[in-house]
Structures are given as structure tokens and as C-alpha cells.
């Protein structure tokens, strides 16, 4: 169950997206996320779907891998859909007891659902095609102007990359502790929600203690290897823009223009 989270997990393969500069991918993800909120009608979805599908194809990551990331948020997804389904006022379609489903409700719920799914798949594409190290490098470089106003950009980037690389280690550890506690008779699966949360305590306490111990050891190991913050540090993989990165920015700009213009043009044609 814990293995299903693909967010922040890199998928190793060779593709154009893998080779793209992380700054382009960061920008691309941001543009894609914003673009999802720039339109209200069906045509917009076609444009966004086309873009997303071509990105998935370019990334050469198996589609099933991307949908795995959705499992983790399925409850959030259902809640959003249900709220939108029942709470949107408008023309009634079905009504029973105190609940009414409206035509507008169905539309908003569906739109909202696709929007969320696209959001998650869109950001998964970035994390699946970029190593966490590369990703934080990109973030560090893109945000580096902020260091002039004393934002500790390098330190934040380092924290993020360490957090990401510790995800698999801590997951393994959780699994181990869970099994150890189950062998001692702990029960993580039955009872109502409160009971289950309470039963998590013997899992979380050892996990926290071990995480702190690991952090302490890691800090020592980093110091022993001469780590002293961002200044005076060189890069093993310095970021340099290539022609394909420029092309990436151009494609992004075209996409952004398309998502703004196409739905409006289509609307006009249909209205006339």
C-alpha cells in the first residue's frame, strides 16, 4: 500500500523530457497547472488533453505508472466530486431526500474531476522524468535571484532534495516497524477511524525517533565531507540551456496562447 505513492519518484528511461533542463520542466508544470484554470468549457479540455497526452507519449514512462499516483488522492477526488455534484445550484436533474443533482452540478463535478486528475498527472510527469537532485538544482537556479534578498535558496533546495531521497528509506522503515508491531499484536486495520488513528501511535513514535537519529547521522556525515552551505560550492552537473530547452519554452508559449485563444474562438463560432 505504501509503495503506491509515485509522487517524487523518478522513473529511469531515455527520452526528450528526461534530457530537458529542469527549469523548463518546472516552468512547464507551472504553466500547465495555471492553464487548467484559464478555461471553463469543453474545448479547453481538448487542448489540455492533447498537450498532456503528447507529453505522456514524449516521456516514455508507462501510463500505468502515472495512474498509480492517483490512487493516493482518490478520496480527495471523490469528496470534491460529491460536493460539486450536490452543492451547485441550477437546473434540477434528479432529486431525492434533501439532495438534488443539477445539470450544472454534473458539469462542474466532471470538470473538477478532470482538472484534479490532470493536475496530478501533470506534476507526476515532472517528477517521473526529473531526478530529485536535478529538480532541486533547477529550483535553486531558477530562484537564485531571491538569495539577494536573503532567502536561503540553496539551503531550501538542499532540504528538499534530502527530504525526497529519504522518502524510500522512511517508507521501508515504516513497513519494517509496522510488521514488527503487527508481530507483537498491534492492529492497524480494524475499528473505526478514531481507533485506527490511535493505533498508529506505536508506529509513529518509533518512526519519528529513527528519523531524528538518521537526521543527526546525516548531518555528521555531510560535515565530515566538508559541507558548509552553498557558498564556494561547485556543481557536478551545472545547468546549461541547450537548443531543445529553447524549443521547450517556445512550445510552452504556443500552448499557453492556444489554451487562451482556442476556447474563445470556438465559443464565438458556436454562438454565431
Amino acid at each position: 500500500m505504501l509503495r503506491d505513492i509515485t509522487l517524487g519518484q523518478y522513473y529511469q528511461t531515455e527520452s526528450v523530457l528526461h534530457r530537458l533542463d529542469p527549469r523548463v520542466k518546472l516552468m512547464g508544470t507551472l504553466v500547465f497547472l495555471i492553464s487548467l484554470f484559464l478555461f471553463q468549457n469543453f474545448t479547453g479540455y481538448i487542448v489540455a488533453t492533447l498537450f498532456l497526452v503528447s507529453m505522456i507519449a514524449l516521456s516514455r514512462v508507462p501510463v500505468s505508472f502515472m495512474f498509480k499516483g492517483l490512487k493516493a488522492v482518490i478520496i480527495l477526488l471523490m469528496i470534491t466530486v460529491l460536493i460539486n455534484l450536490f452543492a451547485t445550484p441550477g437546473e434540477t436533474v434528479v432529486s431525492f431526500w434533501k439532495l438534488t443533482i443539477t445539470k450544472e452540478g454534473i458539469y462542474t463535478a466532471l470538470f473538477m474531476m478532470f482538472r484534479l486528475i490532470y493536475l496530478i498527472i501533470g506534476s507526476s510527469i515532472m517528477t517521473l522524468t526529473t531526478t530529485p537532485g536535478n529538480l532541486t538544482d533547477g529550483m535553486e537556479k531558477a530562484l537564485s535571484p531571491l538569495s539577494h534578498i536573503r532567502v536561503p535558496v540553496h539551503e531550501i533546495a538542499m532540504m528538499m532534495s534530502i527530504a525526497l531521497s529519504f522518502i524510500p528509506i522512511l517508507l521501508d522503515e515504516t513497513d519494517k516497524i509496522m510488521k514488527a508491531q503487527m508481530a507483537r499484536g498491534a492492529d492497524f486495520e480494524s475499528g473505526n477511524i478514531f481507533r485506527r488513528v490511535k493505533n498508529m501511535v506505536p508506529l509513529l513514535v518509533p518512526l519519528f525517533i529513527s528519523a531524528f537519529r538518521r537526521a543527526n547521522d546525516l548531518a555528521l556525515a555531510m560535515e565530515a565531507r566538508c559541507y558548509r552551505g552553498g557558498s564556494g560550492r561547485t556543481k557536478m552537473k551545472p545547468l546549461k540551456y541547450h537548443l531543445r530547452d529553447l524549443a521547450g519554452y517556445v512550445i510552452l508559449a504556443v500552448y499557453l496562447a492556444a489554451i487562451i485563444v482556442v476556447p474563445r474562438v470556438v465559443d464565438k463560432i458556436f454562438v454565431q
Binding site: Y10, T131, I162, S165, M222, R225, Y227, T234, M236
Partner: peptide, 16 residues
Amino acid sequence: IIGTVVEEDVGFGPEN
């Protein structure tokens, strides 16, 4: 181990 790829980890010391 600090890096998320073997070679990045080995490069950490020289980078510093």
C-alpha cells in the same frame, strides 16, 4: 548517502 543517484553522491564531497 546524500545523493539520489550513485554518481551524484560520490560527487558531493568534491562539490563542497
